[in-house]
Design a protein around this nucleic acid. Structure first.
Length: 424
RNA sequence: GGAGGGGUAGCGUAAUUGGUAACGCAGCGGUCUUGAAAACCGCCGCCCUAACAAGGCUUGCAGGUUCGAGUCCUGUCCCCUCCGCCA
């Protein structure tokens, strides 16, 4: 959420930055309502000050046994006027908040211009796509041949965009989660196991609501929502809290299933496990001092990249252009893994600096030791990594001509010493 | 799901028939001290403001009654205990 004071002070600059995301915003109505609200607020507070003063006077007169009826009648009328102001101010508050919640986070100045993923900037490349001397299979065919992914039965029990992992598929998934969590913990993140169902305020806090409610599964009649990412519960852990400066940075990692309705993604990635309604992910979330968030983002990307290096999966890292960024992000790096079936790099992690955007929505602050005033922290999040896509990448990149799949060494301890997946 | 008890600043506790939130601890700053402790003084919820002054708001949340609500009324959320159910 944008700071209304900043909108007052530099609306043109904000409009210029938001244009990088391809968003045109007219702050006019918002600023009008803001000005009106502050004017009404002042008048209301003056009346309240009078009422407080006279009420004290009434108490004093009563104690002394003196008549106070005329004051009470006077204040009854003042009370009615206050009530009228209150309802106007409340209405304006609601309107202003509703507008603010729909304005995206302006990108940081070093975010490149551009409209689509074509305009993203590649910043790094690691490993090289393998050249196969046989015809490699896509992971959906491999998964069925190895009997480790069952799409048929998933369709039966749940529908499209679901998968059942079987045998070594399920074990590989569990091993990856374990491996990723251990790795992240060793790099300074505290492991968290959060709820998968959250309330509306949590989703407003991280930015999914109110604008992207259609992408989230809603559990009626409880008004709870299935998390679209662990970012939601992890970031909201500190909603409405004032953190000690000494406690920062706070780094969390957590495994959860994630649930996305994928509204508007019809026809994309329909085969395989790249895009599912339910998928596993290990997430990183950080709360940091504002001045430290740029460095924290670089470090977070390196943490996620390191996992891919250990797994021996070729990847490239791209800095997203404004037009390809999400609603709440101030700066985003995507890490893309080489996916032979696609013949290109595919997103396997997205790491973002959210600036104070989520902190304002979720009211996450800290108290700088130097000053009395509280400040908003900066939040960051990133996947490390998306488990389903990692499985797909491992199967495709490490398949052998005989139909088996070689498992990277780092996973052997997590798989009881198994070194490859063989057909059963 | 049912019954009962509870929610006041980081923690622990106050507040007369309704009269405008008090105290202790912790924390921060200062005095004193070689340093520390102790003692003493100040600060120690939020908003508005460039900042100040002034003012407003704040007893889980949202309403209501009232000149005035921590206190009375309604709804709701959360926590605890017991019963029921349950992995």
């Amino acid at each position: 959420m944008l700071d209304i004071r900043r909108i007052r002070q530099e609306p043109e600059e904000l409009q210029r930055l938001l244009a990088k995301k391809g968003v045109e915003v007219d702050f006019g109505p918002l600023l009008d309502q803001d000005a009106k609200r502050r004017q009404l607020l002042t008048q209301m507070e003056q009346l309240k000050a009078e009422r407080n003063r006279v009420s004290q006077e009434v108490a004093r007169l009563k104690k002394e046994g003196q008549e106070s009826q005329h004051l009470i009648e006077e204040m009854r009328e003042v009370g009615d006027r206050i009530a009228a102001f209150e309802s106007s101010v409340r209405q304006l508050d609601d309107d202003i908040l509703r507008l603010l919640l729909t304005i995206p986070n302006p990108p940081l100045p070093d975010v490149p211009d551009g409209k689509t993923s074509e305009d993203n900037q590649e910043v790094r490349r690691w490993g090289a796509p393998r050249s196969f001397d046989f015809a490699p299979l896509p992971h959906w065919d491999l998964g069925e041949a190895l009997k480790i992914i069952d799409f048929e039965r998933a369709r039966k029990i749940s529908g499209a965009r679901f998968a059942v992992l079987t045998g070594m598929g399920a074990r590989l998934s569990r091993a990856l989660i374990d491996f990723m969590l251990d790795h992240n913990r060793q790099r300074g993140y505290l492991e968290i196991a959060p709820p998968y169902l959250v309330n509306r305020d949590a989703l407003i806090g991280t930015g999914q609501f109110p604008k992207f409610a259609d992408d989230v599964f809603r559990v009626v009649p409880h008004e709870l929502f299935l998390i679209p990412t662990a970012e939601v519960p992890l970031t909201n852990l500190h909603r409405d809290e004032i953190l000690a400066e000494a406690a920062l940075p706070i780094r969390y990692t957590g495994y959860t299933a994630s649930f996305r309705a994928e509204a508007g993604a019809a026809g994309r990635d329909t085969r395989g496990i790249i895009r599912q309604h339910q998928f596993d992910k290990v997430e990183l979330v950080q709360f940091v001092l504002p001045e430290e968030s740029p460095d924290a983002l670089e470090r977070m990307v390196a943490d996620a990249e390191h996992l891919l290096q250990l797994l021996g999966l070729p990847f490239r890292t791209v800095l997203l252009c404004g037009g390809d960024m999400g609603f709440a992000q101030a700066k985003t790096y995507d890490i893309e893994v080489w996916m032979p079936s696609y013949g290109r790099y595919v997103e396997i992690s997205s790491c973002s600096n959210m600036g104070d955007f989520q902190a304002r929505r979720a009211n996450i602050r800290y108290r700088p030791s130097a000053s009395k005033k509280t400040e908003f922290v900066h939040t960051l999040n990133g996947s490390a990594l998306a488990v389903g896509r990692t499985i797909a990448a491992l199967l495709e990149n490490w398949q052998e001509p005989d139909g088996t799949v070689v498992l990277p060494e780092v996973l052997h301890p997590y798989l009881g010493g198994e070194t490859r997946i063989v057909p059963t």
